[in-house]
């Protein structure tokens, strides 16, 4: 039922955008907000509904870095590597996170899909560099230690929610 609810939401999204091919990007944004990524079959469906070729939808979905065709972790950590943050050692932070989450080469998500790490260019918080965002929350003036703490807090909170859910 969850699948069909989401799927019906896709119809809504397409209708809200007047089934117009020009609205492809807003449509994909909304679909991604719903599914947290862009499932292939939904993209194919969007293409059919808008009367454009699936290859061109795939082309758009892979061009923009905010779109993802793979499911991402529940917490998306994006470390700023804009100029200001870079100068203040953002790549060190990134390394610290990768290490903390025990990610192997080429991996960007933890195996439990709790975290995904990426870099991003400038969050507009340069005054507080180095900065990062976790989902929608921005953190500034970070150190590897602080980052590690933030991750710990999340893990703890999740574990807590988990046990709550089980208790109920």
């Amino acid at each position: 039922m969850e699948t069909i609810r989401k799927f019906e939401r896709v119809f809504e999204i397409i209708d809200q955008n007047q089934r117009s091919a020009a609205r492809l990007i807003p449509i994909l944004q909304a679909v991604q907000a719903e599914y947290r990524y862009l499932p292939e079959e939904i993209l194919a469906f969007v293409a059919t509904s808008l009367g454009i070729s699936p290859a061109s939808v795939f082309g758009v979905a892979t061009f923009y870095s905010l779109f993802t065709l793979k499911p991402k972790g529940k917490y998306l950590i994006r470390v700023c590597n804009g100029t200001a943050c870079h100068v203040k050692g953002s790549m060190g932070l990134y390394g610290a996170i990768v290490k903390k989450l025990e990610l192997k080469d080429g991996e960007d998500s933890t195996s439990d899909m709790l975290f995904t790490v990426e870099t991003v260019n400038c969050l507009g918080a340069c005054g507080l560099s180095p900065a990062m965002v976790v989902n929608d929350e921005v953190y500034g003036q970070l150190t590897p230690q602080r980052v590690s703490d933030i991750i710990d807090e999340i893990v703890l909170r999740e574990a807590h929610n988990e046990s709550d859910a089980h208790g109920a």
Binding site: E40, L43, A44, A47, I52, S53, P54, A55, S56, V57, F58, G59, T62, F63, S65
Partner: peptide, 19 residues
């Protein structure tokens, strides 16, 4: 027809069928 199109960006760009 549009069976093939560009996908990805920059140095990763390829011409490829959908998905």
């Amino acid at each position: 027809v549009g069976a093939i199109d560009f996908a990805y960006r920059g140095a990763q760009t390829v011409v490829i069928p959908s998905f």
